[in-house]
Design a protein around this nucleic acid. Structure first.
Lengths: 226, 226
DNA sequence: GGGGGTTGTTATATGACTGTTATGGTTGTG
DNA sequence: CACAACCATAACAGTCATATAACAACCCCC
């Protein structure tokens, strides 16, 4: 389980990291808001610990940005002296919050609780897809790929989005045609091949995912989990 | 400060309006959901008071529709008898909620609280757009562009303002037409193209932002963040 | 009424995207 | 190992969305 720790005070971020690593989590630390958003897309963590007070972009804004593309659980952090608005935090999509200073125990307990809660909820239909160096924002109709914003033509976007929304599942060409082109599409099924090719040549070979050919059936979006 | 009051019972809407006007707010009242969404786009209020039970489209749906295009604060209203789902309301992006019947005092207090919170937190208000060498003041209806005050025709201004208020989000021509022209506009969608062209030729190519064409969809305002 | 500026429409040009086809390569099968 | 079925690729052509330009209608303020 990967956790992204966002705090402008380096030693605090490191301290938190330490607690989490002790519990077997993998962590990454960043110290400002903009970086948090960027690193989030690259790192694709399973949980985000997010301080409110940050340079450049505050925690609420970071939270909202992340929520644009992901339903990843977020825990907000705030110093006791800062006024933390719970309603606002929840509105922006935070899952829980912790007031600093906190006991290591409490931190771990909340992290575990949120992850447990999240586990049960997110099995269905993500409107946005997030993987390391790859995320799809269905609302903005864009793909963030290795830090760059990729603008794909409509059909390619739909196809990639559909496949990526159902990782591991193979689809027949007919299925893909009716899903992305519509039922009334009467053309050749080779059309799908061509679009897959076009997608493939825009993507690197060394990603953790790829569009695989399922011989005799069609295609699937596969994520390697090493 | 403009407040949009949405309630299907006319006399209740009027009553609420009365309280608010007494406090110096400008108000507009509508009595059903669909109208609320349309009027919202035209009226561009600073806050929305939104009843849950509405004909045609309930308050949750209206809330979601508004959240598609704006971060304006929204306060939900519900009769005590109705089951108001707080979580659902917050998920849809509401900022607060009030149970009817309520004291005028309470209403005003919450309105003020939400507006205050909103003011302090959102560094970029959707009513004013600020970027390097480019800022829009929606109150004064002016654009400051590379140090000069640019006088744009009304329609061009509204279009630019609407797009710039939602950076990164693509809009269909129909959506732009109803947002900037009003829902009664019956003309051709090509109208939008022409206005975009006119805006583009008034702007430099080397700005940090631009109006981008989203093929198959419409247009978006994009800010480059290198 | 006349003139400048604004707005909406239309026709044409341009170009992006899409689908088809042909060819050659790959995979599985007997 | 040969064959058939299937798939990858490239190139082409068609289609559709958008850009552009030119015109017509409108408004409003003198």
């Amino acid at each position: 389980m990967k956790i992204l720790v966002v705090d402008d005070e380096k030693h605090i971020a490191e301290l938190i990291s330490l607690y989490l690593r002790k519990e077997g989590y993998e962590t990454k630390e960043v110290n400002n808001g903009r970086e948090a958003v960027d690193v989030f897309a690259q790192y694709a963590p399973h949980l985000v610990l997010l301080d409110i007070m940050l340079p450049e972009m505050d925690g609420y804004q970071v939270c909202r940005e992340i929520r644009r593309v992901s339903t990843v659980p977020i825990i907000m952090l705030s110093a006791k002296s800062e006024t933390f608005d719970k309603v606002l935090g929840l509105e922006m999509g935070a899952d829980d919050y912790i007031v600093k200073p906190f006991e290591p125990k409490e931190l771990i307990a909340r992290v575990k609780a949120v992850l447990r809660r999240y586990e049960t909820v997110t099995t269905i239909s993500p409107r946005a897809v997030v993987l390391p160096n790859f995320s799809i924002d269905a609302e903005k109709l864009t793909v963030i790929y290795h830090g760059k914003q990729l603008e794909l033509p409509p059909k390619e976007f739909e196809l990639l989005h559909y496949l990526a929304s159902h990782p591991g599942l193979p689809f027949t060409r007919d299925r893909l045609l009716s899903a992305c082109w519509g039922y009334e599409f009467a053309g050749d099924t080779r059309t799908v091949d061509v679009h897959v090719k076009r997608l493939r040549e825009k993507m690197r070979k060394d990603d953790v995912w790829q569009i695989k050919t399922v011989w005799g059936t069609g295609y699937k979006f596969e994520v390697n989990t090493p």
